[in-house]
């Protein structure tokens, strides 16, 4: 048991180090050969890097141990024709999109919950809260992004079930994003655009891939190779919309509060 654990720890450590090596090489080269300045708190920074690497190793090991296998099995069970149509074979291979309700619910739930645990998003949220002086709350931003991913993945599953073209959805989403840009508070726009790329990494991508492939291979007429793609695209466009909507909404609420307070004060004055 312990040997097995140590073996897996070693393997994950090697792959993580391989992923981190390019960043460390680039940072090291520029810090020591180009900038040539002393590093402030070198031991603290070094400790930070060790924490980051160790943290990623444990995180990945845990995901592979606990979450990925179960998530993948669940994705394939929920998309199984036997479960979807209660054991009744679909007639002539025709698919009714409404039969897949549990798949949409699962897609939404898994998009929401995995995005909340996404380390890259936690990092961006922390940074945004600090430099905005608390005007943007890290948790609020992360919830907004997660809802966006959840909605996106749900629509993405609907697309796979109905077999409609990916590009139509994405272009429609772009139009919405551009329109929202004109109305959203200026401060949130760069963060909103960034949140599209941040959402999909370590936790979300493997589960979305399992879901997309499971869905595409269980529906007659869909090819897992071609239709399995696209969920990640949805998960990277929809958060842009949800973050801008969240910012617009919180500005709206804040304005109403100001107005309400003003009215109250006026009434008190009378």
């Amino acid at each position: 048991m312990i040997e097995e654990f140590a073996g897996r720890f070693g393997e994950t450590l090697v792959t993580t180090l391989r992923d981190v090596a390019p960043i460390i090489a680039v940072l090291g080269f520029f810090q020591f050969a180009v900038l040539r300045g002393p590093v402030a708190n070198p031991y603290r920074v070094l400790r930070g890097f060790i924490y980051v690497i160790l943290g990623m190793v444990l995180f990945l090991m845990g995901l592979e141990e606990a979450i990925f296998p179960l998530g993948e099995v669940m994705a394939s069970q929920l998309t199984d024709p036997g479960f979807v149509s209660n054991g009744v074979e679909a007639l002539n291979g025709a698919v009714n999109w409404a039969d897949y309700v549990w798949v949409y619910v699962f897609a939404f739930a898994i998009g929401l919950s995995t995005t909340l645990a996404e380390p890259a998003l936690i990092a961006v949220g922390m940074k945004a809260e600090r430099i905005s002086g608390g005007a943007i709350s890290a948790w609020g931003l992360r919830v907004a992004v997660s809802i966006g991913v959840a909605g996106g993945v749900m629509v993405g599953c609907f697309r796979i079930v109905t077999g409609t073209d990916l590009w139509m959805y994405i272009i429609a989403a772009y139009v919405v994003v551009i329109l929202q840009t004109f109305f959203a508070p200026r401060m949130i726009i760069p963060l909103a655009y960034d949140s599209g790329g941040v959402t999909t990494s370590t936790v979300t991508v493997p589960l979305l891939a399992a879901l997309g492939i499971g869905l595409a291979s269980s529906i007659p007429g869909r090819s897992p190779l071609i239709d399995g793609f696209g969920l990640i695209a949805f998960a990277s466009v929809f958060p842009i919309m949800s973050v801008m909507a969240y910012a617009w909404f919180s500005e709206f609420v804040a304005k109403r509060q100001v107005v309400a307070r003003f009215v109250e004060e006026e009434e008190d004055a009378l």
Partner: peptide, 14 residues
């Protein structure tokens, strides 16, 4: 534990 370590490492290192 991994997530907590990672976040702490970001704050003091990266």
């Amino acid at each position: 534990v991994g997530l907590a370590l990672f976040i702490r490492g970001l704050e003091i290192g990266l």
